[in-house]
Structures are given as structure tokens and as C-alpha cells.
């Protein structure tokens, strides 16, 4: 009898722990948990001073609010050869799509570098390589290295050294509103879905 009660208690504690780590038996990976959390809570991102190509430092939140457009944000480092270049082409196609459909007054793109080695010049060269149109697609790095960690944490970005001089990170497309809330995370390859939902959001906001 005592063993049965002990087993029942262990089961209960186990269920509670499994439920906690899996967000109520809905996810098994941190990435899925991050996306679920963003959809349900739309967390506010902390402010950070950004530097872009040839411009003075500016506040991310201030810029989002002033600009007023929905921003699709990704995190990159310019030396990246693998997944960020996929993100790069993905954002290139998004830029084309935005210009073709004339949506540049509603949606824009921001690529933020998490690599301290990326300065204004490097970013400008990278932007050139990507044929970025400054009115649609901006590149920036975080001015104050102290502010990088909280920003990455708020977005849920985990950067791991890949052992051969580069980084591996959970690359995705993040939808951020002018109010500084992160409302959606889409996979690479789902740029069109990200764009469509950003437009829907812009529509709702403009009503």
C-alpha cells in the first residue's frame, strides 16, 4: 500500500515536470516552445542601441515606433556561409516581393548582426552584396555589447560556436510591431507566410 502511494506520488510529480517542460504536452524542443510563447504572449523586446552603415547609433524601439511599419527581423553575422546566407536570399526575395507588390509603406526588413566583429563598413558591404534597398531593408549591429545578450534572450536566439570559427544559431523570421512586441516567428522558407501575416496585422492596425 505504501509503495502504491509512493508510486502514485512519483507519477504525479513526473506528470507535473513533463507538463512544465513541454508547455502542457505541446512541445518538445526549445524552438517550438519559443514560438508558442511568442504567439500566446507577444513579449515586448528590450530596447538596444543599434548602429547601421554610416549612420549614428539609434534606439531600436524608438526606430520601430517612429517608422510605424511592421518589421520582419532576422539575426545574422556577415561572415556566415550557411544558414544566414539562406536567410539573406530569403530576405532578398522578400524585398523583391515587397517592392513588386508595393508594400514598402507597410512592411520592412531589419537584419541585426550578433557578431561584435560586424561594424558599419562590414554591414554596408554586406548590404551591397545583398542588393539591399535602404528604404525596405536595413542592416544593424548592436552598439553596446552589454545590450546584445538581453536582446538575444528576448528573441530567444541561442548562438553556438560551430567549432570552425563560425556560429550556429536558431535562424528564423521574427515579426515585430511598431509597439516593440514580438508577435510571430516563422521558419526559414516560410517568408511568404511571414509577409502575409505581417500584412494582415498591418491591416488590423490601420483600421
Amino acid at each position: 500500500m505504501r509503495t502504491a502511494v509512493t508510486c502514485a506520488l512519483i507519477m504525479l510529480l513526473g506528470l507535473a515536470a513533463f507538463s512544465e517542460v513541454s508547455a502542457g504536452f505541446r512541445v518538445v524542443t526549445s524552438e517550438a516552445a519559443r514560438r508558442l510563447d511568442v504567439r500566446e504572449h507577444a513579449p515586448e523586446i528590450p530596447d538596444a542601441m543599434l548602429v547601421g552603415a554610416g549612420a549614428p547609433a539609434y534606439s531600436l524601439r524608438g526606430d520601430l515606433a517612429r517608422d510605424g511599419r511592421i518589421a520582419l527581423v532576422d539575426f545574422i553575422y556577415t561572415r556566415c556561409e550557411s544558414v544566414c546566407s539562406v536567410l539573406g536570399t530569403e530576405f532578398q526575395q522578400l524585398q523583391q516581393e515587397i517592392r513588386k507588390q508595393g508594400l514598402q509603406d507597410r512592411v520592412r526588413l531589419i537584419s541585426i548582426s550578433f557578431d561584435p566583429a560586424d561594424d558599419g563598413d562590414t554591414l554596408a558591404r554586406y548590404a551591397d552584396r545583398m542588393h539591399a534597398d535602404g528604404s525596405v531593408w536595413r542592416f544593424a549591429s548592436v552598439a553596446d555589447s552589454q545590450a546584445l545578450r538581453p536582446l538575444l534572450d528576448a528573441f530567444g536566439i541561442v548562438v553556438v560556436p560551430d567549432g570552425i570559427g563560425g556560429f550556429v544559431h536558431n535562424a528564423a523570421i521574427h515579426t515585430v510591431g511598431p509597439g516593440g512586441r514580438l508577435t510571430r516567428i516563422d521558419d526559414l522558407g516560410e517568408a511568404r507566410i511571414a509577409l502575409r501575416s505581417a500584412l494582415a496585422r498591418a491591416e488590423v492596425a490601420s483600421r
Binding site: 513533463f18 517542460v21 518538445v28
Partner: peptide
């Protein structure tokens, strides 16, 4: 069993 299953969950 429960402990070993739990720490095989990627998020854990």
C-alpha cells in the same frame, strides 16, 4: 524511468 525519459527531452 521517469528521470531518464525527462532528460532526453530536447527542451529539458
Amino acid at each position: 524511468l521517469l528521470v531518464s525519459a525527462f532528460w532526453m527531452i530536447p527542451r529539458a
